[in-house]
Design a protein around this nucleic acid. Structure first.
Lengths: 188, 188
DNA sequence: CTGATTTTTTGACTTAGGTCAAAGGTAACT
DNA sequence: AGTTACCTTTGACCTAAGTCAAAAAATCAG
């Protein structure tokens, strides 16, 4: 994971002023209140949100339960992958867990910029690689780790999750019931 | 899923002769026997394998069980994502399920070509998007479908899996034990 | 500070799927 | 065809995690 971030950061350092400037010109700072939705179910994801501060989460409604697919913190980029890329209605919802400040870039603008600034295509690639690697790891976790191990790993790697986020959401992110999570915590 | 394939195909159609030719020049046709390994555990994944015919699979060793992460058929591109991108030793193994014919392209060559043929970067992006979308769907399946539902879905969407592939491998791909798979099949 | 609402914990019970062991099947080799 | 090795099915039992219900804790509004 970290190696993918490094790759991205290294790339950012080699990015020319001009390209940076062009991106900044199309990005708009916005603020949201806790509980606001960045993206509703059925809405097309037309923007990417780069978090400046605050916490957000992405989730969807399964038949029986709500599944949280991702949490976002400062520095992360929030979007619904499928909806953003295909510009079709989103199954996923994005919600502010706390008050939020973001830099907001419309996909249309960004795609246009890619024509004039081809480096942005390479950026897109790196970003997507990072996401795919993250998904691979998450899949790995579900396949080989027990509920307790997943909890331990999350707690160890990302303790920040446990400050602002309620246990219901953490449980739904770990793919376990709230009660099971509570029991795991009691046992440790 | 299909929409991502479409995007890729559309893109391929717009690809100029020159770029195509350049890629063909660095790709080498190879054949393998059933049981041969395309990539061993601990080896660095230096090649991508584009299947011409036959079936392959990718898997890794969990503590308790073997997990099959992907099957490849004619037209698919086989590689270990993490090892290929970071050029580090692979946890995953790629194995021929049947005799195999592939077009083999070294990553070094391909990366060099990307300098002179920037369209290949866009290709890479589309390919990675497809993979990420596929991973998202797989994660979805594990999160909301029962063992039986996962089996049904696979059987329905990809019946070709059940010809050449043994049940042990299908079970390990579906994330269930061989016995459970056998029982599901008996019940349907 | 108090009552109301939301979140988390605890308890009792259920269940999907796993494990271990043995028996049938199938294929492959001589 | 007969033997060996591998696959798959079946049976008996086990376990991690889920569900339902109620109590306890924390948070919030007035």
């Amino acid at each position: 994971m970290d190696l993918y971030y490094q790759k991205l950061e290294q790339f950012m350092e080699t990015l020319d002023e001009e390209t940076m400037r062009a991106v900044e010109n199309v990005s708009v700072k916005k603020t949201f209140k806790k509980g606001d939705l960045l993206l509703e179910q059925g809405e097309i994801c037309k923007y990417s949100f780069s978090l400046i501060n605050g916490v957000a989460r992405k989730f969807y409604y399964g038949q029986k339960k709500v599944i949280t697919t991702e949490f976002y913190f400062a520095g992360d980029v929030a979007l619904s992958f499928n909806s953003y890329l295909l510009q079709k209605p989103s199954e996923e919802v994005m919600e502010c867990v706390t008050d939020l400040t973001v830099e907001c870039i419309s996909r249309d603008n960004f795609e246009k910029l890619k024509q004039s600034f081809p480096k942005l295509i390479a950026y897109d690639l790196l970003f997507t690689e990072l996401y795919a690697a993250w998904l691979e790891e998450r899949l790995f976790d579900f396949n080989v780790l027990s509920a307790t191990e997943r909890y331990r790993k999350l707690m160890h790697k990302s303790p920040q999750y446990f400050h602002q986020i309620k246990l219901t959401h953490i449980a739904s992110y770990l793919g376990i019931s709230l009660e099971t999570l509570s029991r795991i915590r009691a046992r440790i």
